[in-house]
Design a protein around this nucleic acid. Structure first.
Ligand SMILES: NC(=O)c1ccc[n+]([C@@H]2O[C@H](COP(=O)([O-])OP(=O)(O)OC[C@H]3O[C@@H](n4cnc5c(N)ncnc54)[C@H](O)[C@@H]3O)[C@@H](O)[C@H]2O)c1
Ligand SMILES: NC(=O)c1ccc[n+]([C@@H]2O[C@H](COP(=O)([O-])OP(=O)(O)OC[C@H]3O[C@@H](n4cnc5c(N)ncnc54)[C@H](O)[C@@H]3O)[C@@H](O)[C@H]2O)c1
Lengths: 222, 222
DNA sequence: AGAAAAAAGAGAAAAAAATCTCTATTTCCA
DNA sequence: TGGAAATAGAGATTTTTTTCTCTTTTTTCT
């Protein structure tokens, strides 16, 4: 169960994992307490904002001291649902899918991919980083029987919609979609897009801005 | 050059790639014009919001008709800098790095990874999906000589800070960082984090909400 | 012990983003 | 040809998010 069912602003929720990563590094260094000032300096965030975010999770600090690092990690991990991981199915054991399957990081972040699915005969039956690849036909039945609610979608664009519908058929409630398409599914199904391209768009724009700062006054006509 | 240097809200910029993906699929189906109402329905966004986003890029539509799909794609791709791709270096030819190197999608989205770097002797000299893997030691020199401004960072957490500093040493201005650490770099360097964990946090929370909706009134004490 | 400094926490203000309202334009249809 | 419907576009409003201000608490230093 994910802690503190209270409503948290979406931007705050998205910042929480970053806090945990930073806190874990502090813990490794043996730091016992930390202030929002210090967190903000490290993560380039306003200290007040950090304080507000932490308050949403129920964390409590002490004036002049800050927060106990150990306790704060526990509270945040609890809040994020990282302490009892959720089971998920992954479809598309290709390049990206295999990278995710081999990434032990997911389990540390609340997600346990317990099986993979593919349609290609060469993939079915394989064992990718310890995860069995099954025939996609078996997904709906297994998802329903095992009560799996999360699907990770790493198939090519053309197959994405079809595979997503298979997931829904199996009772999947949320889909993490890495294909660059907008899936058309019942409204109750939550779709989290990979947003690789959104990130890239920001990166390219900022880079362009930085380059033109370095090379000022470049007239288009000479 | 990235078009229309005008300031666009960050959330708007992030939505643009999704519009392009949808428009491309319309084009494949032979659709000639599209309204913001239709875009909004497909992407689950408010039509006014779509219109505001498109206005930022300089796109113009006609009442009662909407936007010409072909033209809109061109305007958006121009705006996003997808028409003349930017060159980038990637460091860390492991699982994730290889997946990205083999992904022709990046080039369609404005990024051309022209070389990869690694520190492991077994990786150096290899050819991953047509991209040469070079020794990390050569990165600063090559980056500076070739005028590469973007770095993609896919090394383990422990190496991330060190590698990032190498990139900065080579004149890299922006870093796409997939390691779960907050890089400490000069303020002028732009860091776009992979945000995998932020997405996962949202996914888990929404799933939890959906599950508890399906299983209402679960008292903690019987 | 008392003063000073640092930081949490609460509330107010400001900024940013999303949504709503209205008008003008264009096309379709009778 | 005239009316109805759909939609872009501009501006106003509301909501959300971020930032600022002030108060209180705790610790450290003299
Ligand atoms: N490779 C990357 O780095 C990367 C990055 C971001 C997004 N993506 C996206 O992720 C998706 C996968 O990319 P990839 O590079 O891993 O592709 P890939 O071709 O390596 O892998 C796709 C896998 O999906 C399987 N598949 C195809 N149709 C299927 C179906 N109907 N049912 C089940 N399995 C099916 C294929 O057999 C294959 O194993 C694409 O949509 C791509 O745009 C990839
Ligand atoms: N695998 C995934 O799906 C995934 C997803 C999200 C984030 N990440 C993150 O991406 C990073 C890489 O993950 P991975 O699974 O690809 O790991 P990996 O171990 O497969 O690859 C890491 C690569 O970096 C190289 N490397 C290590 N130290 C280096 C150095 N100092 N200089 C140059 N190269 C060096 C290694 O030789 C290796 O090739 C990690 O930080 C991980 O947390 C991975």
């Amino acid at each position: 169960m994910i802690g503190h069912s209270a409503k948290i602003p979406l931007p705050s929720l998205k910042r929480l994992p970053g806090y945990v990563h930073f806190l874990r590094s502090l813990k490794c260094e043996g730091v016992a307490t930390v202030s929002t000032t210090a967190i903000g300096r490290a993560l380039r965030l306003d200290p007040t904002q950090v304080r507000k975010d932490l308050a949403c999770t129920g964390a409590e600090g002490r004036p002049r001291v800050g927060y106990r690092v150990d306790d704060l990690i526990v509270v945040l991990e609890e809040f994020l649902g990282w302490r009892n991981v959720s089971e998920a199915f992954l479809v598309g054991a290709g390049h990206l899918g295999s990278a995710l399957l081999g990434y032990e990081g997911l389990r540390n972040h609340g997600l346990d991919v317990i099986a993979a699915f593919d349609s290609h005969p060469a993939k079915v039956g394989q064992d990718v980083h310890g995860v069995k690849v099954l025939d996609i036909e078996r997904l709906p039945g297994l998802a329903r029987r095992m009560g799996v609610h999360i699907g990770v979608l790493t198939v090519p664009v053309d197959a994405a919609q079809e595979v997503a519908e298979r997931m829904v058929e199996g009772g999947i409630l949320s889909i993490w979609n890495f294909a660059p398409v907008s899936l058309q599914l019942p409204e109750k199904i939550f779709v989290q897009n990979g947003e690789l391209y959104a990130q890239l768009a920001v990166l390219l724009r900022r880079t362009e801005e930085a380059v033109s700062r370095k090379t000022p006054s470049t007239p288009e006509v000479a």
